[in-house]
């Protein structure tokens, strides 16, 4: 493809890191509940142990995969189409012509807002595609571009 592939903004790695520690926290709380159940209701000890392994293991894997996830996630915005690409072991690539886009949703939780990023969801008449994080300006630009195209070519086809 002639247009350049953009990586996600660098700050997204920080967001992913924080969300991994968030899941560590949640999973540790769950483990704590299992431990309480074990002490007070005599639940099997192996349940708590398994839960602890998951609680520690999952965030570690999630964190370890961040550079990988970052490196192989790409997006491309051309005049007529949006392309998204993700994954290395399972590589996915999707093309969405802007003329098919029904609506664009910008969505930012507190973390993304803090970093001036935004999650962007592009919906067609049948499918939904998400870019995890874009610079707020890029996201708004993409939204305006799609709205512009939608105004120009009013396809009442769907």
């Amino acid at each position: 493809m002639p247009q350049t592939q953009h990586p996600l903004p660098n700050r997204i790695k920080l967001i992913w890191g924080i969300s991994a520690s968030g899941s560590l926290l949640v999973l540790l709380v769950v483990t704590g509940l299992f431990w309480l159940a074990q002490t007070y209701w005599d639940w099997a000890a192996w349940l708590t142990v398994t839960m602890l392994v998951i609680a520690v293991g999952e965030p570690i894997i999630e964190t370890a995969l961040i550079p990988y996830r970052y490196r192989f996630t790409r997006y491309m915005i051309a005049d007529t189409a949006v392309e998204m690409q993700a994954g290395f072991i399972f590589k996915k690539r999707v093309a969405i012509p802007i003329a098919r886009v029904q609506n664009v949703t910008l969505n930012a939780g507190p973390l993304l807002q803090w970093q001036k990023l935004s999650k962007i969801t592009v919906s067609t008449a049948s499918t939904t595609h998400t870019i995890d994080g874009l610079e707020l300006t890029t996201a708004e630009q993409l939204r305006d571009q799609i709205m512009q195209l939608a105004r120009e070519a009013r396809h009442d086809q769907n």
């Binding site: 290395f88 072991i89 399972f90 590589k91 996915k92 690539r93 999707v94 093309a95 969405i96 012509p97 098919r100 067609t124 008449a125 049948s126 499918t127 595609h129 396809h155 086809q157 769907n158």
Partner: peptide, 16 residues
């Protein structure tokens, strides 16, 4: 063509 909403390609590392 006008009714295709999107097209997706998938390839695992072994398929590469």
């Amino acid at each position: 063509l006008a009714k295709i909403q999107s097209v997706r390609l998938r390839q695992s590392i072994w398929m590469k």
